[in-house]
Design a protein around this nucleic acid. Structure first.
Lengths: 208, 208
DNA sequence: TCGCGGAGTATTGTCGACAATATTGTCGAT
DNA sequence: ATCGACAATATTGTCGACAATACTCCGCGA
């Protein structure tokens, strides 16, 4: 069964988990051993990951983990800003009552996590909120793009969540998004999401 | 040199030129003959094109040209709407005088083409206008995404340009975008681009 | 006539071996 | 000591052969 699929998923997960450093070389033979697979499978996985933008390859030289600098992270976030804006708008337009209540619940948990100073918990809730919005929006193309961009951002996302005091700011931005969706106000939802990601971009620029 | 790269480019160009029908099967052996290449190269090309969303593959069954229905074309256009909106905004923020004049010139040519009823010429200018905006905006990530989405839309784009009377409507929308960029008004540029693509979406829905 | 195996065929999946290329290391000349 | 050419090595690129799988069509029984 699907040997190359398994390698692809394992390798992608390992990269996303941060097990490889940026610009680290990915030698095919080593990966073969590490994942107990043939070069064939490894090669296919590398090609797929290149398309995902997680790996870069040079002909006759090999593959390495793509390094995503701050400037590129900002560009990615700018695209996310508008595409997640679209998602928020659609979510506001399509949410049913149960879905709206689910979002509101996440909002309450967020406030609680911030009050308790639970950083990891908050970061988790953040992911759940965005995922819920994507699910409610049911916009396949937009979701695909966000997923791809998200993969390239994991490292910086992590750095952001470690920034002290960040959650105290963003929790109100998240609340604004939730309120807009609950009120079924598409314009407001898009604007709130944009404002939220604008602040992410600012924080990103402040990191270096 | 680079056997698989050549096959990839040739095959992609052939698909974009519409030489394969939607859902048409792409048998590896046939492609080998057609492009005078080994199965190895063909397979690599198919994998890459799958990532591009141009072909779909099923394990142990094979590859076929992906069919993009109206609903999906609408979704693609909705994403384009916001991403090209971002591009238009950036273009307005960054255009220098020469670039602004270049856009204005394209606008004048467009009016002339519409007046003369030159459909093909107008469609060409349309492509040039959007390309110019992308170049001025210098937003790599946004440009990548648009390129990918554009590849999936070629068939429908063609159908749209054949719609009689469409150019008379869109020429003024294009002019609004150009005016906004020339005025260096980012908000107006984004709004104009969104309005333009909103009308594309309407036309798309009207096709069937 | 219809449904149901089952062989045969078409097509893709996987691999190991070898070729091509880039990188690294070595030696000699200046 | 430094630079260049050349050899050695590491790594990826390419291919052809075979295995595995899905599809097709035929014959058989009810």
């Amino acid at each position: 069964m699907a040997a190359d699929t398994r390698v692809l998923e394992d390798l992608r997960a390992a990269i996303l988990r941060g097990e490889f450093a940026p610009r680290q070389r990915l030698v095919e033979a080593e990966l073969c051993e590490q994942f107990d697979a043939s070069r064939f499978s490894v090669r296919a996985a590398l090609q797929a990951l290149e398309a995902d933008g997680l790996v870069e390859r040079q002909r006759n030289v090999g593959a390495r983990i793509r390094e995503i600098g701050i400037e590129e992270a900002v560009e990615i976030s700018e695209v996310r800003q508008v595409v997640e804006g679209l998602i928020a708008r659609r979510a506001a337009e399509r949410a049913n009552d149960a879905e709206a209540e689910g979002l509101a619940a996440i909002g309450r948990e967020m406030h609680a996590a911030v009050a308790a100073g639970e950083v990891a918990e908050y970061s988790d809730l953040n992911a759940r909120l965005h995922a819920s919005l994507r699910e409610i929006a049911r916009h396949e193309k937009a979701n695909d793009i966000i997923a791809r961009l998200h993969g390239q951002m994991v490292r910086h996302q992590f750095a952001l969540s470690r920034q002290p005091g960040r959650s105290k700011v963003s929790v109100w931005q998240h609340q604004a998004i939730i309120d807009a969706v609950v009120a079924r106000d598409g314009d407001a939802a898009e604007a709130a999401m944009r404002a939220h990601i604008a602040s992410v971009i600012e924080a990103l620029r402040a990191i270096r």
